[in-house]
């Protein structure tokens, strides 16, 4: 036993294990104290989108409540749909970003003069998109279209190879063309959902 405790490698491994256990304990406590609940995240998102606190009137879909996400193969999925006054707010995840990563957007659809329009698109988060910061507010403003009029081919694209199949073509963003495409896919999923007769 004494031989084992004097062994250098035993000491090294023991030290690392004790250190890991101590630090994990500290992090576990801090994680409990500093945890941001999903409700607070939603409130933050609403503040970011509308610039003021808003109340959700109805939850049509929410994966956090156990609902199944609306999925469009090879394009994206909708995780949340909230009814806020006359608006419908979608949280959509666009696929096929840089290195097959994703871009998550909040997309607000409003009814204006009898027409269904995308009135605001705000970036929520992204996975593996190093240059997501290159997508400016002007880029997201490109999605603000009349949904009913522009939905002939049913697509936005930032990929020049797919421009013949799209209603709205974006100029590829330098350094973030794939991230831009994932953002387009998030909006395309929402357009598809609306076209299929989803919540309007």
């Amino acid at each position: 036993m004494k031989k084992l405790t004097n062994n250098v490698w035993f000491k090294c491994i023991s030290f690392l294990l004790i250190l890991s256990a101590l630090l994990s304990g500290i992090l576990a406590v801090l994680n409990t104290v500093l945890f941001v609940p999903p409700e607070e995240r939603t409130e933050r998102a609403l503040q970011k989108i509308y610039g003021e606190a808003k109340t959700i009137d109805d939850i049509v879909l929410d994966v956090d409540n156990g609902d199944e996400a609306y999925t469009l193969t090879d394009c994206g999925k909708i995780n949340k749909i909230y009814k806020i006054g006359n608006d419908t707010l979608y949280q959509a995840v666009g696929e096929k970003g840089f290195k097959n990563g994703t871009v998550t957007l909040w997309i607000n659809v409003s009814l204006k003069d009898g027409k269904l329009v995308i009135s605001k698109v705000v970036l929520d988060s992204s996975v593996g998109q190093s240059f997501i910061g290159s997508l400016s507010a002007a880029f997201f403003d490109g999605f603000l279209v009349d949904v009913t009029e522009s939905y002939e081919k049913g697509k936005f694209t930032a990929n020049p190879l797919l421009k013949d199949n799209a209603d709205v073509n974006f100029n590829p963003v330098s350094g973030a063309s794939n991230s831009g495409n994932a953002a387009c896919n998030a909006v395309n999923t929402v357009l598809h959902y609306i076209n299929q007769g989803g919540a309007k």
Binding site: V8, W9, K11, F15, L16, L19, S20, L23, L27
Partner: peptide, 17 residues
């Protein structure tokens, strides 16, 4: 206290925390 052989992994653990 930190053994010399594992000082770098120990530093990384502390920094990561």
């Amino acid at each position: 206290v930190i053994p010399n052989q594992v000082r770098i992994p120990a530093f990384v653990l502390i920094i990561a925390t």
